[in-house]
Amino acid sequence: MTEGLAAQILEHIRGSGLAIGTHITAQELAERFSVSRFPIGQALQLLATKGVLTHERNRGYFVSEAKDTSPETLGLVARDDTSDIYFRIAEDHLHGRLPDPASEAYLKETYGTTKAQLNTVLGRIAQEGWAERRPGYGWSFSPMLTTPESLEQTYRVRLALEPAALLEPGYHLDPETAARCREAELRLLYGAIETDSADALHERGVRFHEAIIGASGNPFFLEAVRRINRVRRLLSYRSMIDRKRYRQQCEEHLQILDLLERGKNEEASQALRRHLEHTIENLQEIRPILER
């Protein structure tokens, strides 16, 4: 599990464009990957031995050099067993093949997991909002995000929220955050669109939108967008089978960044609105992928 988790952390660092010297906290990573801090600590130690991170006593871990490295070049497994189990459960849920409720004994036998693996996967699923533990018996899986219509609805909510966030009176996008976002987009345009995992692609999009919304200074905008991002993962992963549209998305992200850095928030808000509208239009083109 350590190598797989280390690979996921590395992809998170690269996909988010984190600059050298950025502080990496175990607590944030534990919440992001729905695991305890102990395996996170082991993965961070491994990345430190590989030169990706540096460790400073009593201060923690900092990004050293991850721009030109990958899980493969470091001899790490790109995804661990729990990721495979996660995607199998996700596909079965999307196809309506899971009983409701599903007992842990059923899930353990069906997917051939250990108790620890199943706890890790269910913890991640619960955090993303598409399953919850039933009192005294098993797990219930939400029907909310299993259709193309429901995914489009999440984008319509974002269309109402995100452009407005860029117009908040206290809006300020700091240069370091903008630089990280730009580096992540350029990295994709230079080839990572085709090579990054679905996890990494989804994470990069999430990080971009949460970064520019977080700069509004209004925590209610950011919390709403984060909740939406957690529950839309299922169909977002499937939509990544077709990656042709990602070049346009990257270019639109870069345009929005440029406008924000120049203080043209009204134009940036309009550009963000067009960007989300384009995404909704693209969902119609990939509908067969989402419905299969």
Rank of each mutant, 00 (worst) to 15 (best):
R226A: 06
A215W: 00
Y246D: 15
S216I: 00
E251S: 13
P219G: 05
A211R: 01
S216R: 02
Q248I: 10
E210M: 06
R238M: 05
E251T: 06
I212S: 03
R207H: 05
F208D: 00
L259K: 01
V231K: 12
G214R: 01
N218D: 14
S216M: 02
Q249L: 11
R233Q: 12
R233A: 05
E223N: 11
R233G: 06
I213Q: 04
E210S: 05
C250Q: 14
R238E: 10
D196N: 12
P219Q: 04
H209W: 05
R230L: 14
S197L: 07
F221P: 02
Y237N: 10
S239D: 11
R238P: 03
A200R: 11
I228A: 14
L254H: 11
Q248V: 13
K244V: 14
I212N: 03
L259V: 00
N218I: 06
S216H: 02
V206D: 04
V225T: 05
Q248R: 15
A211L: 00
R245T: 13
G214V: 01
G214Y: 01
R207A: 02
G205N: 14
S239F: 04
T195G: 13
V206Y: 03
G217I: 06
K244S: 13
P219E: 04
P219C: 04
R204P: 04
G214C: 02
A198E: 12
D199K: 06
H202I: 03
Q255V: 00
V231Q: 13
I228D: 14
I241E: 15
D196Q: 11
D242G: 12
D196P: 04
G217R: 10
L222F: 07
S236P: 08
R230F: 07
R226Y: 02
V231A: 09
F221N: 03
R245N: 08
E251R: 14
R232S: 09
L222Y: 09
R243D: 15
M240G: 07
R207L: 00
Y246T: 08
L259N: 00
G214L: 02
L259Y: 01
A215S: 02
E251H: 08
A224K: 11
R227C: 11
T195K: 13
I213M: 05
R226F: 04
N218Q: 11
L201F: 02
L222R: 08
H202N: 09
Q248S: 13
A211C: 01
G205V: 03
H253K: 04
V231L: 15
I212R: 04
E223W: 11
